[in-house]
Design a protein around this nucleic acid. Structure first.
Lengths: 334, 334
DNA sequence: GTTTGCTGCTAAATCGATTTACTTCGCGGA
DNA sequence: TCCGCGAAGTAAATCGATTTAGCAGCAAAC
């Protein structure tokens, strides 16, 4: 920039005014402005954004916290986030905390230190408030200063269980999520309440819980095998998510059961692979990309128009996607 | 920091020396140092990293370019990259270019402008050199200043085709990758050369090419159906990647073929879902996470020790993972 | 003839650190 | 007494921009 100024015989102040189209530039005649633009193009001038940020205290940077990058859920959400942030000219840092408490605690500070103007937390249980605007996706805890974007789990549980109920299933096995997943408890309560409403009995012996933080179907596979050893007399299985549903299907097949002829399986999420699994998965679709987009929109709105008021919660609706993995219950006589 | 200085009755210079443990701090007595640390802790002092970067011209930030976030390949690589960068205290920006030429061209500049000290490009064909150190994963084009991390595609093609060949397959259908994927051409040439070596005939009518930039199995599904219409007389199919292999399997099943009894299918990548697909996929495993780690290591090495010399290419080896989707060719008599 | 106002620009402060080149003080030795 | 030296720290420049206050020059108004 100094080089530019020298070359043009102008001061850096003038150049700055013009380049930024700031109101002060209206007193600069058009010819001078053109000279500046031409020179800027010629020398490929690119302002140092660090210096600019330092002065303006705007960095156009967001921090995104996810549990894990390789996993389908976060990736889809990230993709929505990225879409919107990119449109608005923001960049973002990604950090993954692998469910480590200390990192979850520390990252918001680190991000702020790196001049992030806001934080989006995906599937992360965070407590302790935050000095910068934050939006949490499936955060569930109400934390001061944080907008929660959540799914209507009651609706989700309802459409899933009703679907199974209509198909005639009464003995339904359930796979609960890992304790660290922020959706687990909410969804579980929703399922219990809907089950009662529909007259479906929740049997302790028919429920299992994912227990490892691996994002692989292996976990669902393992717990389903255990389930089958304990009490195999169920005709349908409602998994915590599609990943575990896939593991469950493998376990069922390995023990000689056909899906959906012998056991119907329903998942949750509708990840990329769900439609192409064999059998393709009936599942409760979360609008993951949209959740990402909404999160980004909400956050940017809060950043650009800092208001005392901000939405505490935004609820999105799931949708039942019926595919091949569920079928009417076999007639007992058959 | 100024507040700290005032509170301690010291100058900001002294504090800076101590906080950064710089050599100049050796003349500051231990008691004073302790006083400074104590005060820093008490006031939770966190230096403004923008200011520091501006001065030191180090940002501890890397830019990572991927085609798409939601996709398995990039996610796995990213996960490896993240692992190593995190260990070394670096943060990173993620940008996804969706194969848009203009973005691929522009992003390196934008990243540099944002003070990224290096760039990692994943599965991105980039030409035009770069002013900062760069590492490309599966980049294949030799570009000045860029280290390429690539898979040994010859070895990959070899173990895959040999596997099918040993199982008795001679008529093998091939699905080639999208033109924009940087691996496509290299892998294709490797396949052609290995096929010749093994005496496998590549039939134009038995080859298809992925044509959409969607990361869904749908694309593989579509081209396989077309393949089946043209000439269904193949006993094995070698897909460009696991995603398209999954689509292909679906297409085969829809047209009444069993996998692997009627047609063997082999994929490439070994993504998360491959082991839990039904049937589980035989595939050529790429060490994706490791590629990410190696990329990060190499880049940081180049950043911290800028040498005239840097590796132009690092080759990693694939590995055949045999699962259920391949089987010996049916006896013609059967 | 002076004031007023506008045009076109610049000097200098600022953002929050790092870093270099001193200064000041006390003390031991010549 | 005076010099030199190490200890303990500081003043000021710097990084690369933005931004505010204001200056010079000229024309029109009074």
């Amino acid at each position: 920039m100094k080089a530019l100024a020298e070359h043009l015989g102008l001061s850096t102040a003038t150049i700055s005014l013009v380049i930024n189209r700031s109101p002060g530039a209206k007193s600069i005649p058009h010819v001078t402005q053109e000279r500046i633009w031409a020179a800027a193009r010629k020398f490929k001038y690119r302002p140092n954004l660090m210096a600019r940020s330092l002065r303006q205290k705007r960095s156009f940077t967001i921090g995104v916290m996810v549990p894990e990058i390789s996993e389908g859920y976060s990736s889809m959400v990230l993709s929505g986030v990225e879409d919107h942030l990119f449109q608005e000219g923001y960049f973002y840092f990604v950090v993954s905390h692998r469910h480590r408490k200390d990192l979850i605690e520390e990252y918001p500070h680190l991000l702020r230190q790196r001049a992030a103007e806001g934080i989006i937390a995906v599937d992360t249980v965070y407590s302790g408030s935050c000095e910068i605007p934050a939006v949490s996706i499936s955060g569930h805890r109400h934390v001061k200063g944080v907008t929660n974007i959540v799914l209507d789990h009651n609706l989700g549980a309802h459409i899933a269980l009703e679907h199974l109920h209509r198909l005639g299933h009464r003995r339904i096995a359930l796979i609960k999520g890992q304790d660290f997943s922020s959706d687990t408890e909410t969804r579980w309560q929703a399922i219990l309440s809907v089950a009662q409403e529909l007259g479906i009995i929740i049997d302790q012996k028919l429920t299992a819980q994912l227990d490892s933080d691996s994002p692989s179907p292996e976990v669902g596979h393992r717990v389903t095998r255990k389930l089958l050893e304990t009490d195999p007399r169920f005709t349908a299985l409602f998994a915590f998510n599609d990943i575990s549903a896939m593991g469950a299907i493998k376990a069922l097949r390995e023990t000689g059961r056909r899906v959906p002829e012998d056991v119907s399986v329903i998942g949750w999420d509708d990840i990329q692979g769900a439609a192409f699994h064999n059998p393709s998965l009936t599942t409760v679709r979360q609008p993951l990309r949209q959740m990402g987009v909404v999160a980004a929109e909400t956050l940017l709105k809060r950043i650009t128009a800092p208001a005392r008021e901000y939405p505490r919660e935004i609820v999105l609706e799931p949708e039942l996607v019926v595919r091949e993995s569920t079928a009417p219950m076999k007639q007992p006589s058959a």
